[in-house]
């Protein structure tokens, strides 16, 4: 395979877990809640899917378990920040630690255990296309599910009533209250949905991409997803493009090393973060104006200083 195809194909498969988590975080932030626990949701999703996959032998049941685990962790975040007024940053980081500990405690027995993961499904005809075939159509079914995820989430967020309510919770919470809706319910629902998607991202990582479980295997992908949402200025479509772009940046190193190029992987690993910082700086105040209004309040509300 040519380097070009290699990198693109690696970017799509490596970017998928980031894309799931990024789309989930977009939903959450659109409702006005930032979740640094995304990394944690991915971790419990990865272990949940892997453990249940091992026990049942069915990777789809595993994905359901991973989604549920990711959602449960995010639900706790939603409850703490929405109902108990906890700091969004502190709560998110606490839940990351909770996930690190829980997956270490319950994951030890699954290290090195074989799992029936997702097989590659080559899509008939399409997989034979030059370049596009191997890049887009020679992957696992969970990755294909990702192709319909973004249009679906976009449709729900922007074309349905429930999407409008979620976005209103993130833009003008007061007007939601005036019309008799519960802002808290919208926010907790959106955060939980985000966690479900992050859990599915973790499931893709464990049962389709790596086909293994090991401690702390998400390795910062959840934070890449948080960066990605800002990089994409809260648009699901740009999250899709950004996830594959970041995936390609990460896939470039190994692809070059396989061809005996001397390349330091870590400069490439920094690309998603440096690009996001660059976008933030260049767009400056325009990024801020694109962000959901209630999210701005999260940042502007200073932590207690006395």
């Amino acid at each position: 395979m040519s380097l070009f195809v290699d990198v693109l194909s690696g970017g799509v498969s490596g970017g998928t877990s980031i894309m799931y988590a990024g789309v989930g975080e977009t939903v959450s932030e659109r409702a006005g809640v930032i979740n640094l626990g995304t990394e944690g949701s991915m971790l419990v999703g990865a272990l949940g899917s892997y453990a249940v996959g091992v026990e049942t032998g069915n990777p789809w049941v595993g994905v359901l378990a991973g989604a549920a685990a990711g959602g449960a962790l995010a639900l706790l975040h939603g409850y703490l920040v929405v109902r108990r007024g906890a700091s969004q940053f502190a709560s998110g980081l606490s839940l990351l630690f909770l996930a690190l500990g829980l997956t270490s405690l319950f994951g030890a027995t699954y290290v090195g255990q074989p799992v029936v993961g997702f097989d590659t499904w080559e899509i008939p005809l399409l997989s034979d296309l030059p370049v596009l075939g191997p890049v887009l159509f020679q992957h696992d079914p969970l990755l294909y599910l990702g192709y319909v995820l973004v249009p679906t989430v976009w449709f729900v967020l922007f074309k349905t009533r429930i999407g409008l309510l979620v976005r209103t919770a993130g833009e003008r919470a007061d007007s939601l209250t005036v019309h008799g809706y519960s802002v808290d319910a919208m926010r907790i629902g959106a955060v939980t949905a985000g966690g479900v998607l992050a859990g599915m991202g973790g499931a893709h990582l464990a049962t389709a991409y790596a086909n293994a479980w090991f401690e702390n295997m998400v390795a910062g992908r959840g934070f890449i997803a948080v960066a990605l949402v800002i990089f994409a200025t809260w648009s699901p479509w740009r999250v899709l493009g950004g996830a594959y772009l970041f995936g390609c940046a990460i896939a470039l190193g190994p692809a070059l090393q396989a061809r005996a190029f001397e390349i330091n992987q870590f400069l490439l690993d920094a690309v998603p973060f440096v690009l996001t910082l660059a976008v933030l700086t260049v767009l400056g105040k325009r990024t801020l104006s694109a962000s959901p209004a209630e999210l701005k309040r999260v940042f502007e509300n200073a932590p207690p200083s006395g």
Partner: peptide
């Protein structure tokens, strides 16, 4: 896990309930 549980207990159940966010 223990570290996180302590944090969650303190963050969530000792502060006065504030108006959303912060």
């Amino acid at each position: 896990v223990l570290t996180a549980l302590i944090l969650i207990a303190v963050l969530g159940f000792t502060a006065q309930r504030k108006k959303a966010t912060a």
